[in-house]
Design a protein around this nucleic acid. Structure first.
Lengths: 200, 200
DNA sequence: TTCCGGAATTAACGTTCATTCAGAAACCGT
DNA sequence: ACGGTTTCTGAATGAACGTTAATTCCGGAA
């Protein structure tokens, strides 16, 4: 059976996440697929392209997940909760991609770099808009929407960092906990009641 | 004037933060000091040693800053606030060191790696102890002290990430805002009143 | 059976890198 | 002005890297 383009990207993503882009050689990526390094070039144009495509897809997936999470939701507190929960679930479900996104932006070369940074910025802007609306509507009482937005944007990455150290919590519970953190950070006044999670 | 060991470390730290450890060559480090690459070896034993010492010192400084911040403070909420504020101020004051600490652990080789990871773990344990005590005393009402601790540990790094994008806020204000975030996250019931900061 | 195209390999190229070494240059107390 | 020490450089080394080239292998279509 032959090596597929996606298999190369998956193996590369795993190695990039663990060792970094520059710390991973084409030989290692090939080795993960029991294949020689030059053979990879039958399936992908370059090492840099691997990185760009991995990040591009992860960003698109994050945007799509946010679209779906917000569809039909009007309450701004519920929007923020869903956005955060979706982010956490997306991150927990694709830890390697996310690690690469968070640590290898500096390994990107133009023109991919600008495009991916723009996508990341667009995501931040969408979250920021929710926070601002919550403040405008008086639902969020924080006096610092900008720092709060940045803190919230980092929550999913934070969940990824320690999740699975021990397997005590299910992903859904983690997502709910972090959704609460987000509402705590903006000082949401009235939030919808949720069933209590077990103490962790 | 001759190149000092500390000057090499400072220049290396700046470059490591911007380009990554593997993405920075000894020639570049020398170039930053207007000096040849081989000459660096008259002042430092190896490139890896640069990374280890940078991280080691940053960790020691963080521990010392926490010592000082907690000295003579008994109230657990005030402890958490001071710990967070001190962390933010330390990070904002040494952004390059912190960036290196947060992104280049994977570039560490043994035996330095284990030692530095242990120091990082000890710091996390100290913060965790504060959160646990606050919960035990009933001051913190969060049902999830473990995730809360991890979220709080990331706050200083988060502040560093966006600080100075525009110079609107002074470091002290940022520290106070993040101190509030920490208390929000653990759901601290009664917190000491603070003068209001300007809206951001 | 023949033939073609993709998948794979080995060899090789040019580059970059960390590090070593031998010696030049600069500095300093005398 | 001198001798010794420190500081520095250019040349060189061996290894690793991304990538290209030439070639072999194999499965399926004609």
């Amino acid at each position: 059976m032959s090596v597929s383009t996606d298999a190369v990207r998956t193996a590369a993503c795993e190695l990039f996440a663990r060792q970094g882009y520059r710390g991973t050689s084409m030989k290692e990526i090939g080795g993960a697929l029991a294949v020689s390094a030059p053979n990879l070039y039958n399936h992908i144009p370059s090492k840099q392209d691997l990185l760009v495509v991995i990040m591009d897809r992860a960003m698109d997936r994050a945007h799509a997940a946010l679209d779906e999470a917000l569809a039909g939701v009007d309450d701004v507190a519920e929007q923020l909760r869903r956005a955060t929960e979706t982010g956490v679930l997306d991150f927990l479900g694709h830890p390697a991609e996310i690690t690469v996104c968070n640590t290898e932006i500096r390994s990107l070369e133009e023109p991919g770099r600008s495009r991916i940074i723009a996508k990341r910025g667009a995501y931040a802007t969408r979250i920021r808009a929710i926070v601002d609306r919550g403040c405008a509507e008086g639902r969020f009482r924080t006096a610092h929407p900008r720092p709060a937005t940045f803190a919230i944007l980092e929550l999913p990455a934070n969940a990824t960092a320690w999740f699975n150290e021990r397997g005590q919590l299910a992903a859904g519970e983690v997502a709910r906990i972090y959704g609460d953190f987000a509402l705590d950070i903006v000082r949401c006044s009235s939030r919808r009641a949720r069933p209590a999670a077990p103490r962790t």
